[in-house]
Design a protein around this nucleic acid. Sequence first.
DNA 1: AATCAGTGCAACCGCTTGGTT
DNA 2: AAACCAAGCGGTTGCACTGAT
Length: 284
Amino acid sequence: MGHHCCSKQKVKRGLWSPEEDEKLIRHITSYGHGCWSSVPKLAGLQRCGKSCRLRWINYLRPDLKRGSFNEQEERTIIDVHRILGNRWAQIAKHLPGRTDNEVKNFWNSCIKKKLIAQGLDPNTHNLLSLSSSTNNNKRGLISTSASHQQPFTVDTTATAAAAAVAPIISATSSLHDQFSVLNESSCIDWAAVTQQLAALGQEPEQQQQQRQHEVAAAACVYKYKVDDDEDEVLLSSSGGEQLQQDLFDATCHFDFPFLDSAFIAPQNYNPMVMDDALAWDIVN
DNA sequence: AATCAGTGCAACCGCTTGGTT
DNA sequence: AAACCAAGCGGTTGCACTGAT
């Protein structure tokens, strides 16, 4: 089966030779790539434009960082994946010098297994035992973020809230059965979560910090709701007020806490939506 | 030494998105 | 509005490499 994009041409497939690499590098550094479909002809390559583009982006680009992922990068991938799901290109944007393909491969070959070994569902980041029940819920809190159709869909039922907060609580070992953080009105009592974190004084500082960031991230996701019909983000406060903003506006100006302790860019983000101010408190 | 299974990664495929005509 | 095209994206495949038997 040939490429539909270049079925007319006789194109080479498979691994690239050093000579082909050199031709592509020479061409792009001299003239830029312009229209990719014209690159093979101009560069003297018997490849399709798509293949050239991929080779350049994933392997030849000079700003690529080679070598294995470090601990910080791994942490970032896990944290961003928890929010965004399998949106590799988006995740890669948080890792300078890394490509979506690289992140995806690293996830599939390494991180996934680590999470499973830790008893976590790599798709939902929930405990494996909880995931089976929440998978039936089409609008699970963080789990549905794996679908790029509705990346921030939120289920505000108590079950979903419990599922969301479970990995955070369970990860703090002794708090396994502390689901009291969920109050009767089906909302997560973030202040209680914070209090319980504070009780973890004996936890190593770094671990404590990580845990706090996880709660902050979960708190943020909890605040996002996607209106299926309008394709807009509703940022809702627990008081029932709603602030509507364009999806892109909202996400573009939002700094996830695990990436930067400075957290949210206040000039672009309305702090009123963080009504219980957990995120501000625990980070600042 | 030969074979086999497992793993990691580069590359491909098909679909979607966005821009242009 | 429809058709077309290029670029981008995520899932999947294929192959080279490695370690175990």
